[in-house]
């Protein structure tokens, strides 16, 4: 079968491979090359070595500012989303009335796209809360924008993580919880010593999902704050886009930023891979 199938390569493999070259491989390598170039268009690029990277790390303070802002935002949102999602999942695995309905509602915001979601919340935060109470809108201060973004992302992602936690919690054997109770463990002790270790895989998945989602956030950022005031709520993905085209040298700088951004995301993914591998060994 192996040999017969091999001859069918043009039908089975070629379409995806060709599209993959166009949509990923070629742009990826041109991008990598251009990060070492000064260029206006792709055709007239001149090789300048590490000059773009030097600029990213030294001259461009916006990149580091955005990095710090993104890191802080990621930290806050990862903790908030996971704690709330886990608590909700605990409540929804006790067989209470209306469980299915609650689950459906909590998951729903996930399906709404970041742009639409961002504008819905912008209207509510601005005209429902900030302007009537303080006479200012989201673009007035960095703190408003920061917490606005946290709120939007939490509203969107709690349901998703809740679903994963629920499926994790449902796989904890009933007998183990019963055994712990018979041995005299209280609610908190059972949770900490029996349930939590058993749902560790779900916790790892959710932590990394929220981590990469927050780190790569763009649409919500664009709709809700658009970096205002004065690029102080600009996260990394938006910083890369806004850098491109500002000065003659900015094309290369933005591409170099993108490479650094990619490396950071890749490191997060590698850490995830390692931690899942370790867990598999233990089991």
């Amino acid at each position: 079968m192996n040999k017969t199938l091999k001859r069918w390569f043009p039908i089975f493999l070629l379409p995806t491979l060709a599209a993959f070259l166009i949509g990923f491989v070629v742009p990826f390598f041109i991008g990598l090359y251009l990060s070492f170039c000064e260029y206006g268009t792709v055709e007239n690029a001149t090789f300048v070595g590490f000059a773009n990277y030097v600029r990213v790390f030294t001259a461009d303070s916006q990149f580091w500012y955005s990095f710090g802002f993104t890191a802080l935002f990621t930290l806050v949102s990862v903790v908030l989303i996971n704690v709330i999602a886990f608590a909700v999942a605990l409540g929804l695995t006790r067989g209470i009335r209306g469980t299915n309905f609650f689950r459906t509602v909590f998951f729903m915001p996930n399906l709404i796209g970041g742009i639409v979601l961002g504008y819905i919340w912008k209207m509510i935060i601005n005209y429902g809360v900030l302007i009537p109470l303080f006479g200012k809108d989201l673009s007035y201060s960095t703190a408003y924008g920061f917490w606005g973004l946290v709120l939007v992302v939490a509203w969107q992602q709690i349901g998703y993580m809740m679903i994963i936690y629920i499926s994790g919690l449902q796989s904890v054997p009933e007998e183990q919880i019963e055994a712990a109770k018979i041995d005299g463990a209280g609610w908190w002790q059972t949770l900490r010593s029996v349930t939590l270790p058993m749902v560790m895989p779900s916790i790892t998945i959710c932590t990394f999902l929220t981590l990469t989602n927050s780190f790569k956030l763009f649409d919500q950022n664009l709709a809700l704050t658009d970096g205002k005031p004065f690029r102080t709520t600009e996260m990394l993905a938006m910083c890369i886009r806004n850098t491109y085209g500002t000065t003659p040298k900015s094309h290369g700088t933005a591409q170099a930023m993108a490479v650094v951004f990619f490396l950071i995301v890749a490191i997060i993914a590698l850490l995830q891979l390692r931690s899942t591998k370790e867990k598999e060994v233990q089991q």
């Binding site: 166009i22 070629v26 591409q255």
Partner: peptide, 24 residues
């Protein structure tokens, strides 16, 4: 090829956002 596909899952869109439109 399989490893290349898996690798592409890790790459954020920003990495190709200036070059993909050019190729397309």
């Amino acid at each position: 090829i399989y490893y290349l596909f898996v690798f592409s899952m890790v790459v954020p869109f920003q990495m190709v956002m200036f070059t993909l439109p050019y190729v397309a």
